[in-house]
């Protein structure tokens, strides 16, 4: 049950901030860092003092001063979460929650970060985590890359979903393009029939129809790329606002444009060929309506 609920609910976290507007310039008070969205939402600013309690109903708590305001990073796993993050000194959180000298996880920096060129003496994250896990006792080490894959599961699913929508769109545009090409060809049956009677070869007819279909496809995909770029700018602007994140949601990269243009050009050529075949298989006299 908790997974689903956790998935959609607003997490308040293990710590409750209360009396937020009490501005006490306490000396020697511990500091904490809060999310800038929390600062905006609750009107907190640097130097304000807040009371920390593990539960809303807890009668007492500890005071801390806001020493920093943080902005969350462009992390896909953070996007869909609307809860606010507050960072405390480890020992204060431990004493506040009464868990004693315990931690949830810790990070280890190795000599060699993933992707750097291997060195005979250097140790990479994979070998370190493997070594830790081999002698592990009650915990497990994960290389950062593995964690990133795990945390971006949502986005991988969304990505697959987008791909599927893309496939449907390609099918739809293929049908559309073939239909338009057929219509354009049908429109000029008499014209082509007359040209064929005058001695124009089948190959020339096929070439010209294919050229025309390709041009339509090229022009369409150029317009589509422009439209896509504009749409992605709007999408980014909108969702960056909605989720308060610098993360980019839609990207129109040269590779994507190249794929789209190639694909539509291919569709154009194929549909042009199919439409032209229909035309050249019909006798010229029939084309001119005799």
């Amino acid at each position: 049950m908790r997974t689903l609920l956790r998935w959609w609910c607003t997490l308040t976290g293990a710590v409750i901030l209360t009396a937020p507007v009490l501005r006490v310039q306490g000396q020697g008070m511990r500091t904490l860092a809060i999310d800038e969205r929390l600062a905006t939402a609750s009107g907190l600013s640097l130097g304000d003092s807040v009371r920390l309690a593990p539960m809303a109903s807890a009668p007492s708590g500890q005071w801390a001063r806001i020493g920093a305001i943080t902005r969350r990073s462009a992390d896909p796993s953070e996007i869909a979460r609307s809860e606010y993050r507050v960072r405390l000194h480890l020992d204060q959180l431990q004493s506040l929650t009464g868990v004693g000298d315990r931690i949830g996880r810790f990070a280890v920096r190795t000599q060699l970060s993933a992707g750097a060129s291997p060195d005979a003496t250097a140790v990479g994250p994979d070998s370190v985590s493997a070594a830790i896990n081999a002698m592990a006792f009650g915990f497990r080490a994960y290389p950062a890359a593995e964690v990133a894959i795990e945390t971006s599961a949502t986005f991988r699913v969304v990505n697959r979903f987008h791909r599927a929508i893309g496939i449907i769109t390609i099918v739809a545009s293929a049908i559309f393009l073939l239909c338009i090409t057929l219509l354009k060809v049908d429109e000029r049956r008499r014209e082509v029939g007359a040209l064929r009677l005058l001695g124009l070869s089948r190959a020339t007819v096929v070439r010209s129809v294919m050229l025309e279909a390709s041009l339509i496809a090229l022009l369409g995909s150029a317009l589509g790329a422009g439209f896509g770029a504009a749409a992605s700018a709007i999408v980014n602007w909108y969702y960056q606002g909605v989720y308060a994140t610098p993360l980019k949601f839609a990207l129109v990269t040269p590779e994507i444009v190249a794929i789209a243009v190639t694909l539509s050009l291919l569709l154009g050529i194929v549909s042009g060929y199919l439409a032209a075949q229909r035309l050249v298989r019909t006798a010229p006299l029939e084309l001119v309506g005799r």
């Binding site: 609920l5 956790r6 609910c9 997490l11 308040t12 293990a14 409750i16 109903s57």
Partner: peptide, 14 residues
């Protein structure tokens, strides 16, 4: 739920 929390989002109990 315990005030200020959502069902099972924390280990808070009443």
């Amino acid at each position: 739920t315990p005030r200020g929390t959502m069902p099972f989002d924390s280990e808070a109990t009443v």
